[in-house]
């Protein structure tokens, strides 16, 4: 399989100035991130809130310009496209948002919401557009009657289906799923996840699945990356990481998942808070909360492969 998107050394810093003449500080929202997603796979991105997952997805969407680094999409650099390629890439990358109540315009009918990408990129007559929108509604498991309804007449799960229909309308190559189920109740979550899985199977979509919910990632993704404070701390095959997490942070994260076999419910908790992303520590960013921390942790550590043959990468001094 070929790489659909390659993110290389991506950095996004936001400047913060304290006071009018204060020194400029930077929030290291995304710091030196490198990963790639293959055609047709579902790549998971896990991390606590505030770790930079959303900034990363917004940068791929080009809501932000990166401070440094490149993103190569379909063998083209996303940040130096000519006008036609730019338009094509806007068509090829779509997003499903977290909050179904905020992601659809309350003043537009479901039909015109789904038709918006079609109107923007394809030249179809009104009738063709309507037929297409109704086909998409069917595809995401909604009745075509929804075509002329308004968002407030729909439940959260139904709205999220509308959001998905809008995202798949142009048959994009990459769909970014930004916590698509975290605002929904459990029963609806499962339906949406199954819908996404079915769509991937039938259409061959590539997903970047962002979530803080590990069980969701386990269900959906073949590979995953764990982010902490703007950096990837562990990356590799989902099955391997779930079986044997290596990085202390990943271990803690996975231990906080209750299992059926568990009898002792005193979960190992995180101690302390995440350090501030403004001017973060130079060495390991997790050191302040890590119970295995040693002196070497104050030095910078790059991601490295655990052993030669596997694709399992980790960023920790203790595992070197």
């Amino acid at each position: 399989m070929s790489e659909l998107i390659e993110v290389k050394n991506l950095k996004k810093y936001f400047p913060v100035r304290k006071g009018l003449f204060g020194k400029k500080h930077f929030v290291h929202a995304v710091d030196d991130i490198t990963f790639s997603i293959k055609q047709g796979e579902c790549f998971g991105l896990v991390g606590e809130s505030g770790c930079g997952k959303s900034t990363l997805s917004r940068t791929i969407l080009r809501s932000y310009n990166p401070t440094e680094g490149t993103i190569t999409f379909s063998n083209k650099d996303l940040f130096s496209l000519n006008k036609q390629d730019e338009k094509q890439s806007r068509k090829d990358i779509q997003m499903v948002f977290q909050d179904p109540y905020w992601s659809v315009n309350p003043k537009m009918t479901i039909g015109s919401i789904i038709e918006e990408p079609i109107v923007t990129h394809l030249k179809l007559t009104k009738k063709e557009r309507e037929a297409e929108a109704k086909r998409l509604l069917h595809e995401v498991g909604l009745s075509p009657d929804f075509y002329s309804r308004y968002p407030h007449q729909l439940s959260g799960g139904q709205r999220q289906r509308v959001g998905i229909a809008r995202a798949i309308a142009l048959n994009p190559k990459l769909i970014i799923l930004d916590e698509p189920t975290s605002a929904l109740d459990m029963s609806v979550q499962a339906q949406i996840l199954n819908l996404l899985k079915d769509l991937q199977r039938s259409k061959g979509f590539t997903y970047l699945f962002i979530s803080h919910d590990l069980s969701v990632i386990k269900h959906m993704c073949s590979r995953l990356a764990v982010m902490y404070l703007g950096e990837i701390v562990e990356m590799g095959e989902a099955s391997k990481i779930f079986k044997k997490p290596e990085h202390p942070y990943t271990k803690l994260l996975f231990n906080s998942l209750p299992t059926l076999e568990q009898t002792d419910f005193t979960l190992s908790m995180f101690e302390g808070e995440m350090p501030k992303a403004i001017d973060p520590p130079k060495g390991c960013r997790f050191a302040s909360r890590c119970k295995y921390a040693v002196d070497a942790c104050s030095k910078k550590q790059e991601l490295f492969f655990i052993n030669e043959e596997s694709s399992h990468q980790v960023r920790c001094h203790l595992l070197k």
């Binding site: 997003m95 905020w102 309350p106 003043k107 537009m108 990408p117």
Partner: peptide
């Protein structure tokens, strides 16, 4: 900051149209 505005921008809807369709009515 709303999703529908971001979605429209991300899919390449021109600014004036985002303003006219999504921002002004709301």
């Amino acid at each position: 900051e709303r999703g529908f505005v971001e979605a429209a921008q991300a899919m390449g809807v021109p600014s004036w149209k985002v303003i006219a369709r999504h921002i002004l009515p709301n």
